[in-house]
Write a protein that binds this DNA or RNA. Sequence first.
DNA 1: TAAAAAAAATGATTTTAATCACCTTTCAAT
DNA 2: ATTGAAAGGTGATTAAAATCATTTTTTTTA
Lengths: 229, 229
Amino acid sequence: MLDKSHKHVSCATCGARKDSHFGSFCDHDVELTNEQKTCAYFKKGQAIFVEGSFPRGVYCLNQGKVKVFTRGDEGKEQIIHIAKEGEIIGFRAMFSGEAYKVSALTLEECNICYIAKDDFLNMIDTNPTLRNGIMKELSKELGDRAVFITNMAQKSVRERLAFALLILGDIYGDEQINLTREDMANFVGTATETLIRLLKDFKDEGIIEIHTRKLEILDQEKLIHLAGK
Amino acid sequence: MLDKSHKHVSCATCGARKDSHFGSFCDHDVELTNEQKTCAYFKKGQAIFVEGSFPRGVYCLNQGKVKVFTRGDEGKEQIIHIAKEGEIIGFRAMFSGEAYKVSALTLEECNICYIAKDDFLNMIDTNPTLRNGIMKELSKELGDRAVFITNMAQKSVRERLAFALLILGDIYGDEQINLTREDMANFVGTATETLIRLLKDFKDEGIIEIHTRKLEILDQEKLIHLAGK
DNA sequence: TAAAAAAAATGATTTTAATCACCTTTCAAT
DNA sequence: ATTGAAAGGTGATTAAAATCATTTTTTTTA
């Protein structure tokens, strides 16, 4: 169980910071950011921001994972991204000046810090390293989504699942993949039933092991091969 | 037929500039850019850059339209974007430091200017208005692609075609939409035969008029309704 | 710890859209 | 102006995956 107090996370000691966009900050900037940010505990399944509303700041994940998704016509979720410790989320809509086109919801208990819009934009204006890092991320994401769109259009569900498992394996690192079947289906872009059947196939083929809700990748090479280009 | 000389386009008189990212440039910067850029004539169907190669500069469209696409496993194109006069293309991979994840190919005769990487990055570093405009575009595109992914996952081909026609109508403005059926199918993410059949349905329903290759939108409201959210 | 709710799993059926095979029209080049 | 190639179009068939209906298992909470 995570500490639920709102002040316990300090930027100077934040474990997620060193590999984040704030990793290159000097001590002075770290301290300034520490004073600007507020920190909050989120329980599992809690909304961070919702599609259609307007951003007033950005969220920096200290602990825990978050799903970022849109809802289609009939309210069905399409998961666009799963963010993990160290990621900043919600800055896209801030730059574009639009309402959020996605929602963000915690997948587990999280500690999340908040930096107000003006403070963050000021950082971007004055810190070229941060700015270039953010531009690089925006650009990289854009390329990834082009590939994602192509996959949706041209690959079978089986191929897309292999691709998705590789991405999820990356996000979860040493931990086992831990998502509901429904969330996983909404990430792959398929029906829950179809996903369940395909997971079983993968298990029968020795590609993954299923520990109830948690998935373990046994044969990454095979997944790479299955996923194609 | 466009002028094919390589020097005829001047930034100062470029008709596409005022609504572009360079629209806010002062006279001095316009002149500097004019000296930095080179200009080239491209005939229809010519490649501007190709997936997998590394960017050495950006391309600014003075005249003509360009398709931006990826190729899936079997070489089938997925059109991600259709760029028109005034747009800058190819800067994503420059910021991300990766190889191009997309290719760009002219859809008609084009005049296209080229600005070398260092010159462009220097502009970005020193001109906050340009920089913010680019960041805004990156961010907006990212949101649009999230919606696109959701559409691919959840909408029928008919709905996606309606959506695509609205986007194309926007891009082509007063002109009629002018794409091969194959390109249109590769934009919608469907088979050419399916697209042809659906276009005929739309025609029978009085939504569009087909003038051989060119399409005219008759009932935009109906398209909006069909496309859904 | 028992009951209720949520998630996972399975089978049968239907639907959508892809694929295949072929014909016609349009366009570009000689 | 002719001809060949590219693009557009049509019908029949197949295949992939969605949907629907239920059952089983796991998790949560009263």
